[in-house]
């Protein structure tokens, strides 16, 4: 009764390298890491089948301790097929990233960044003097202009109302802050 030390060592090395590669930002390395991880797991399944050198199972008179368990090999076969499919798909995706962005790196989520940079102040919820929106204002307004806070900004006419010039300019830019930067414009 001895465990095959070589297999165990190889498995450990594969796991270590796989996890190391997985933590990289380069997609190709991530893919290599995943391949190492799945192969390490396949080796682990193989070791559950019995010790190296045992006979295959072909005769029902063989004693239980004398043959290799065939089930783990069936499991490995399935998992190899699955990891093959996933690897092929990952390669396709990596190629597509290369075609689209000319880089082989995981990119940041633009919307995530935007939310992270948004100040905690929210004009709608936290403004000190909320703009009176009811039809029967409690306090009579002094000025003729009811658009609070927009007086000292440059504004342009947009349709039926005035919007800040900075926003209007941003609308014209390809990398507008209103739309997501993809080619679909973020609205599907």
């Amino acid at each position: 009764m001895s465990v095959n030390l070589t297999l165990l060592t190889v498995m450990g090395a594969l796991y270590a390298c796989g996890i190391y590669l997985l933590l990289e930002r380069s997609l190709t390395r991530v893919l290599l890491g995943l391949m190492l991880l799945t192969n390490a797991t396949n080796l682990l399944i193989l070791t559950t089948g019995g010790y190296a050198g045992l006979a295959p199972f072909f005769n029902k008179d063989t004693a239980a301790g004398d043959y290799n368990d065939p089930l783990p090999q069936a499991l490995i076969l399935t998992s190899i097929v699955i990891s093959f499919a996933v690897t092929a798909f990952m390669l396709g995706m990596i190629y597509r990233t290369w075609v689209l962005a000319r880089q082989d790196e995981i990119q940041d989520d633009a919307e995530d960044r935007r939310v992270a940079e948004t100040p905690s102040f929210d004009a709608e919820d936290d403004a000190e003097i909320p703009v009176e929106t009811s039809e029967f204002p409690l306090v009579a307004r002094s000025g003729p202009d009811d658009e609070a806070g927009t007086d000292d900004e440059d504004t342009v006419q947009a349709g039926a109302r005035r919007i800040p010039a900075a926003d209007a300019a941003a609308e014209e830019q390809p990398g507008s802050r209103n739309t997501s930067p993809d080619q679909e414009g973020g609205s599907k």
Partner: peptide, 30 residues
Amino acid sequence: TGPRIRAGVTYVVVSVVSSVLFLLAIAMIY
């Protein structure tokens, strides 16, 4: 498209890692 591929990479890698963990657990249980 660009954003979908970006999101897809995260999704695929995380899912594959969880599947490897599951397979690892199956091997150990067996």
